[in-house]
Write a protein that binds this DNA or RNA. Sequence first.
DNA 1: AGGTACTGTGGGAGCGCTCCCACAAGTGAT
DNA 2: ATCACTTGTGGGAGCGCTCCCACAGTACCT
Lengths: 351, 351
Amino acid sequence: MASHGVRGRGGGRPTLEEVAARAGVGRGTVSRVINGSPRVSDATRAAVEAAVAELGYVPNTAARALAANRTDAIALVVPEPETRFFAEPYFSDMLRGVGAALSDTEMQLLLIFAGSDRERQRLADYLAAHRVDGVLLVSVHADDPLPDMLAQLEIPAVISGPRSAAETLTSVDSDNYGGARQAVEHLIGRGRRRIAHITGRLDVYGAQRRVDGYRDALRDAGHPEDELMIEAGDFSEEGGRGAMAALLERRPDLDAVFAASDVTAAGARHALREAGRRIPEDVALVGYDDSAIARHMDPPLTSVRQPIEEMGRSMIDLLLAEVADRRPPASRELDRRQVVLATELVARASS
Amino acid sequence: MASHGVRGRGGGRPTLEEVAARAGVGRGTVSRVINGSPRVSDATRAAVEAAVAELGYVPNTAARALAANRTDAIALVVPEPETRFFAEPYFSDMLRGVGAALSDTEMQLLLIFAGSDRERQRLADYLAAHRVDGVLLVSVHADDPLPDMLAQLEIPAVISGPRSAAETLTSVDSDNYGGARQAVEHLIGRGRRRIAHITGRLDVYGAQRRVDGYRDALRDAGHPEDELMIEAGDFSEEGGRGAMAALLERRPDLDAVFAASDVTAAGARHALREAGRRIPEDVALVGYDDSAIARHMDPPLTSVRQPIEEMGRSMIDLLLAEVADRRPPASRELDRRQVVLATELVARASS
DNA sequence: AGGTACTGTGGGAGCGCTCCCACAAGTGAT
DNA sequence: ATCACTTGTGGGAGCGCTCCCACAGTACCT
């Protein structure tokens, strides 16, 4: 019998109070049960659970958030202005991992775009209002002020792809260095001798690490150093095409190329075709990401697979841990965590 | 200065009350100002706005949600269990449109996965708790109970890709029928006479519409009907391959194929290659979606582009309108809206 | 017997808003 | 001058929770 002050509420969903009345206990006890407190007798717990089931009670998140000063939500912030990153399988794979990890919890996932200035401002207000318990950061550039803002607001955050070796935030990354080594060692194993590298955007730490891996793999195999075999790309197809053309000009005798991304490799492939080089007979080609493009390229592209879904999972695990044990930031810095996950080479016909 | 009852709150963010004190007005007045009520004098409004700026006040969403019984959040529900859909550019493009449309509002976007049974259950609880003001539904199958659940809970919802011609929810879709016609008419224009079609999953309404478009385009061009030229696929690469093989067996003289998706076309391409048919010399190939795969295929694939980003935008616009004017469901049914956006053929070397 | 320590429980206070009623002050018709 | 509105404003009540204090009951020491 909906009684006093019914404000057109959607059919009067049951409240904690009603559950308490039904179970013949106090409000506090119901709260303890639904929050899994151990300080409740078994009999009482059973009675409350029965009442919850009978009434179809679902806690009101807003009330809980207001009273407990937490939100049970985390945000995934996508700072990319040009949403290039966004269209890559990278994004959806990570989302899948994040979603899977989250489905074990009560946490909700908010998607926040911070490309434009206005979106940035909105994000800043949003974070200032502490409307999420934690933040997942992907694809952040070295000069982005976001991580510092987060640190200042003391909002737990995990970043995918550390900005540098000195990353202060908890981070999850794939082994860019090792992945590059795998690619180059694979090419060496295939008998290639003059292996070039088209880099990614070098303001991205992971791209730098791939260059390091490329260099070290060659050095360890006793190959002479040759800076002319390295050309800067920017992860784009056009960049790959241009870089490949430059490399062919400088080192027409090259017999293999390791590209910092599959899209870059696709660009390189065009340039190679135009120059009349066959893949893999004349020039072997290896990409990075193992995206759909790699599988559908002609010939199919050998590529380095990152365990992206697993990275998403890891990020959630780390973030939830930080949210849970909310320590003073001082101590937090001591055991900051940098997780690095192994990559895997997927060999195909291009090499 | 922090006085009574400070519960370790994060540095005491200012409240409505504090803004009111600072501006020398009452709480109600501040509330009116921040909610844009017209019933405030200009002088008072200015004073309140100044106080808001000085204090850096940001409203507490939880309190607002609790008091006003709304959440200022909408959910994007992804019901796909196998997240195939998810890896398609389709998803990220739509997300981009949704994000763009949303950035003009105060609404937040929640991403909810409803693949597994557990996720389903969580979603049901979530919706029952009215934790979002509206729901965006993508990639919903004909037998999914979700739309009905939404209707019963009276939660505004917009669906992308109506489940049938009799869709009861507000929907946004691209013109599958027209897109298929464009593809077939393009092939006819190129002088092709024996045009086959590999369908998508026929339990998806859009796939049916593409078949209709294919049929009508041929009929209108005076081509004889030939059911043997149609083979069922399932949007997958493997399905495309198998369907192509079957078609070649039945109609070895076919000279063109319209595939219901780019991925399907990629599968068809493999089968054609294996059969020794050249593309486009022997058989012209047209796909659907204009995904990255189409651009990177060899030869590049002619494909039908859907205005997906625009669809995302439209969905948000429609949903927010429904959220805003919360009418009784009865009247809502009368002017339910079905928006259909035009497609565009992107001609490439495969046809 | 008295103390101390727990365990389980009830319920007051309060989280920061919105809603709405009350009311002061101004405006115009009667 | 009286009444009836309108406009702008203040502040009480209440949204549904969590937190925490108080307290009854039981158990185990001295």
